[in-house]
Design a protein around this nucleic acid. Sequence first.
RNA 1: GCACUAGUAGCUCAAUUGGAUAGAGCGUUCGGCUACGGACCGAAAGGUUGGGAGUUCGAGCCUUCUCUGGUGCACCA
Length: 590
Amino acid sequence: MEIIIEKLNRICGEAFARAGYEASAGRVNVSNRPDLCEYQCNGAMALAKKEHKKPIDIAAAVAGILKEDPAFSKAEACMPGFINLDLSPAFIAEYMESMLLSETAGLIRTAAPKKIIVDYGGANVAKPLHVGHLRSAVIGEALKRIAAALGNEVLGDVHLGDWGLQMGLIIEELKDRNQTEFTLSDLEEIYPAASAKSKETGADGELTEAAKSFRARALHATACLQSGDPECLAVWKRIMELSKADLKKNYDDLNVHFELWKGESDVQKYIPDMLQDFIDRGIAYESQGALVVDVQEDTDKKELPPCIVRKSDGSSLYATTDLATLVEREMLYHPDAYVYVADQRQSLHYLSFFRVARKAGIVRPEETLDFLGFGTMNGKDGKPFKTRSGGVMRLEILIRDICDAVYEKIRATRDESEISDEEAAEIAKTVGLAALKYGDLSNQASKDYIFDIDRFTSFEGNTGPYILYTIVRIGSILKRCGYDEAAVPEVSAATLQTAIETMPSLKELAEVLSRYNEVVPAAWDQLAPHKICQFIYELSNAFNTFYHEVKIVSEEDAEKKAGCLNMLVLTRRVLTDCIHMLGFEAPDKM
RNA sequence: GCACUAGUAGCUCAAUUGGAUAGAGCGUUCGGCUACGGACCGAAAGGUUGGGAGUUCGAGCCUUCUCUGGUGCACCA
């Protein structure tokens, strides 16, 4: 398999070379004027100045050569110097055949597989997941699956926040209540209560004395825990047990699965040696009582504050545990690359701690450290998404709401003889999750976006349900024609060619399909799952146009019908593989 | 104050990384049902890409100035 655009680049480059120009000018793009041609090459215009020739003359010479190539049914020069290209049916049919015969539907596995750790999720123990955790989970999971589909070895790590102040708050709150035993639902009530208690402010807007003293006690309890106090540790273990199980269930509901359930507590043991090493090598020094590392570089436009790796009270913080986590990962997994998925607001922290990691040589110079910062999920008013009462919405509630909305739609439109209430509820869970994830992933990760439940759950337009509907529709046609999962029609380039030659909308579908193996690596290189969303949306549109134009089931020409069915199988395969990469599934019917 | 980020159709989003006439969906208007699933398809209207200047054959994209939002600027994570 070769990516189609690279194949075309090669052919075009050779044509430029034969005409006496540099082959690098033969770069081909998908046309942005589909009314004129399918592909275009703009190399002649870039060459004109250097060659002291008119671009149209160069283009004409090259087009003359390309006209003879069996890959094209059209190759013509257009003013001021474009080369317009149409693929020949034989060429595209052959490409479809190779995709159909490929185990990966044409997706090309990377020649140099990497070991990649994706750090996402960002859950904190003892705090329920809320909407702020959605994007990290959804985007991180998608990136992980995309990288894996390309043949990389990928480990997802939830990197739990399990060693911070929230633990001290709960420990002290339990003491105040004289309580030693507690359940998950107790915990769900205890933490918010304790948190509120520590933040209580008086009329002047300052923390009250009670809040201050409670906070001080919590800080002390946190310190006790971190220094291994058995009593605190016992409570901590119990909290971990309950909370982890709950988090796992919540992430399962999101179809998000982590290979590693590591947390801050796992890497505490590396911190003393790591910091001592920093000091010994002169990387870290004391400043205002804290231990810091300079991260300023000459090319920086502004002053960067040094990275604090130990607070003046001797305790560790965010950057410390992140660095220690790298120490452990290097030791246990030797990865080639890291991707961190977290809120855009943390970009400074990541920049800073990446630099410390490099400066201290925790990672090898050739290892990559990437940070994908995502934007805020806003409500329809453009402000951060809140519940009606203005609070933070729990993720479970959000998922429930979206599934309920889908459920009502399915009940309203279903054929009751085919879909029971129970089935409708099952389908609504699948479709609701797709609506939620697609709604998020179809936006560029780094930008803020507006969460609109009505739009996301719509079955029309660029939505998850529309994509699923297309998959279900293809399944329905194949079933009607007698093909189930196992029985795939025999593949033949000649048959496909006949079908493509006689049905223009099928050729368009084929050309969208041919871009599959180009889009997925691009989505990975740019950490841009929305490119896959855009692709499957275009693919669904191309299919539905074709569907509407050609009555497949009643097609009488056996060869044409076989070609169509092959294309249906391939379309479904590509759509299914793509949504799997995005982290959701299609139901059998909906 | 300094820095980062965004600004594209009434609304929600794209734009193959510098290429031809800036594309989709929703909404609006019009057209298509004896359903291979109409949860669909086709068509129309809708734009000075926040604004100014520059770079070149060519700019939504690059440079610079400017306006408006959002965010971040050492001991929270």
